[in-house]
Design a protein around this nucleic acid. Structure first.
Lengths: 129, 129, 129, 129
DNA sequence: GTGGTCTAGACCACC
DNA sequence: GTGGTCTAGACCACG
């Protein structure tokens, strides 16, 4: 389900956060669904419970999940999650576009790159057919 | 000229690198121009010379500048810098686009955001008129 | 295990890098194996931890090892290491051959030297028998 | 005649040494021929006379040239120069071959690389015809 | 004066 | 405990 890569230079708790965010954004984990307990997930991934605890705390702080004492942690409303993910992505895109403009890069050149990214994966899916 | 933010979580030497990359990309520092000496920039920013030294070493490794013992550090060819900056920007954009596709975001939505970024600044310039 | 030579004109961190590269290339240190910690190796060699830190950072950048905060540093995949070492060696050989050609040295003379190096050690091994 | 590259990371005096060694090895400068004076060469290359002085001193120490007080510096016997150049090149090759053997690389693989280096340039010369 | 290396000692983030 | 960053201060090589 989740996989941590020790060769990845980012801290493990960040990897866990990102993987969970991704699963929630893509609907693999649905609104209101209960997340695995800190201890069970720690056992599954063979890492320190403190690390999972930290990931969950951060996800709660950001608004992706909410915790109920004595019950567990749950996925927040999908509307909210979509908004959070979208805001982050668009902010990054905005910064990139601003920098590109400053460097004198035509915006059509950016479109082109986006088309390539979208088309590329589409091709792969077609090959699966 | 350059400013370091101690509240920023990123290491100081990275902030210095990015600021200098940016200045070179925008042509504020021209090809062949001598950068401030390690010691003088360290004094200006009120940080340790070793930290600047590290930033310069990394910039040289990446190809943005070249350093000569006893002479100083100098901005590399602008052609090369444009290429380096462009490659980095497009790689980031590619990753963003791939993520957006995975999240089911229409690429037209990305175009829209880019147009906004390009248009926005244009608006500001027009307001100056 | 490792030895630094203060009479050597090359910086200490480079000597450490080369010794470790050599050990990894020869299989003395195997894939995934944990390297000595920055502090312990520094103590062993009686040099400053920062110097070891720099060597490890460079080795990671080159792809020979990977480091994880709070865990340690580990030898990369042997396949990758073989490739890195081989590339370096052949590049050096290419430069030597090019220089030899320019000086009007027959390439058979180079073969001869290589045979000597290969044969010489073989002789030693035979003497052991 | 000689050219120094400020972008080259090696110190200028080393570049001057190598260029002169090369010219002597290839017979561009003949046995007994007088080298340009320290001051005139310094002026030509627009660098500090101390730098040239250092290069000449090092070349004399290595046996490539000899100086006569009040007269100038002269190229040593070509037999000696050939020997010096050859010794350096073959020592490097020997070390490379030894390392290759230790890594389990077949010596035929080294021949191949040498052939490529010799052949490649030969091709270019043929194209000139 | 310039860049480059090294030491000693401190603090942080992570696990 | 681990790796990573930073400071203060020193010394060297180069021009």
């Amino acid at each position: 389900m989740i996989h941590v890569d020790y060769k990845d230079r980012r801290p493990i708790y960040e990897q866990v956060i990102e993987r969970l965010q991704d699963m929630m954004a893509r609907g693999v984990m649905e609104e209101g669904e209960q997340l695995p307990s800190v201890r069970s997930l720690a056992t599954d991934l063979a890492i320190n419970p403190n690390t999972i605890q930290r990931a969950y705390a951060e996800l709660e702080r950001q608004g992706y999940i909410y915790s109920v004492k004595g019950k567990g942690s749950f996925v927040a409303e999908s509307r909210k999650i979509k908004e959070l993910i979208g805001r982050e992505l668009f902010e990054g895109l905005k910064a990139t576009a601003a920098q590109a403009k400053e460097l004198g890069i035509a915006k059509e050149r950016l479109y082109q790159e986006i088309d390539a990214a979208y088309g590329e994966t589409t091709m792969k899916e077609e090959q699966r057919i």
